[in-house]
Design a protein around this nucleic acid. Sequence first.
DNA 1: CGTCATTTTAATGTATACATTCGATGTTAT
DNA 2: ATAACATCGAATGTATACATTAAAATGACG
Lengths: 227, 227
Amino acid sequence: MSKAVEKAYQLIRERILSGDYAPGSHLKEEAISEEAAVSRTPVREALRRLSNEQLVKFIPNQGAYVNSWDEDDVDVIYDLRIMLEGYSAARAAQRISNEEIVELEECITEIEKLCEQHSKENHRRTIEHNHRFHSIIIEAASSERVHKMLGWLVEIPMLLKTIEQYSDADVERSNNHHREIVAAFKARDSDWARSVMQTHLRAAYQIYTHAAPNRKAHQTMPSYSAP
Amino acid sequence: MSKAVEKAYQLIRERILSGDYAPGSHLKEEAISEEAAVSRTPVREALRRLSNEQLVKFIPNQGAYVNSWDEDDVDVIYDLRIMLEGYSAARAAQRISNEEIVELEECITEIEKLCEQHSKENHRRTIEHNHRFHSIIIEAASSERVHKMLGWLVEIPMLLKTIEQYSDADVERSNNHHREIVAAFKARDSDWARSVMQTHLRAAYQIYTHAAPNRKAHQTMPSYSAP
DNA sequence: CGTCATTTTAATGTATACATTCGATGTTAT
DNA sequence: ATAACATCGAATGTATACATTAAAATGACG
């Protein structure tokens, strides 16, 4: 995207995900445009993009508010990811190139190496490689639509933190899933690929729900949406 | 949405769906702003919305082009609809109100009445009621995310025309599906509801593929995307 | 003292003017 | 003649000024 829009977009997104902009707070265009050192026009465009990703909520003639999600919404997000990434894996099984398979295997070996000893830095790089692994598959599925839709499901802070909760057994299981997905790809077996991918993500969901300290304590939209 | 944006949005959308703006053609902001009698600003915003719905494709520093879809994309659209509307039906089964169920039944009786004799007008109203039927269910699923995502899958002209291809037997089968979905809702059976909904849409897909005179004749993006 | 109408204000929505970028065209040198 | 290069133009990208709207503050009245 263009320079100023990207600048505003990244800034707003960062601040929302970091919690700097609290859920429900009013994102005023002028204030943001000053902080990002761009004019209101690109800020507006960035906000529109974020509203499509459901990170902010628009109210006509009133502007943008940081969106919040309740427990049910998190469930939906996981359900959608499981459906769509499962679908992606199925499509990828019939479309992925040998080069991409090699890349996937490199991701796996990297992750396994990094998991041998725990550290903040290794953790960060593990997340990166994991993300890359999933991205390659979504790319290989070769559908703009699916790619875009999945785009607004991932990278939500709560969900990203899940990986920090993985026990050693969880990590080993996850790595096994990764290997099995590649095996399914090599066999060009769509059903197998989809099945393993869905298993992989369902397991992640379980770890998240058990790790979440207070699942019932959901953030709610403030009263401006009510009479 | 605001007035001018809505005006531009509707105009562009209409012209794309009617084929007035041909696939691949360049949508120039200034030209559109004159036709819609608004300034470029709301036109830009409308184009961004349409690009999120995948109706137009953006190329940086070059602008918006009417997007086209090939056979594979149509397959993906149907697959996604089947997954997401199936999911919606499953959620709706546990959330739908009695009032909404009554509304669904009204839609069904209306459709059945309209199907008794063929006519252009009855056809149009059938489509309307059918659309309403599906909308109520998606509403009842009660998830902004799912609602929005399904928003950019429906109302593509090719797909809308499918219903015109329905034989009498197809129509009767469709009506039976509708009734069975309501039955599943009354039983609060999520799996049943999802299953029938997916059956319903898979049948529609089959009718489309068989009715399409030349499925292989897909529109392709012009060469600006190729070297 | 509370309620309702009015005014004010601060934000969004829109229009327009300016900057930038990329492609087309045409020229020149090899 | 062709390829590299410079120039020009038309479109997008950005900034800013103006219009409109809705919420908040104020004040009049019951």
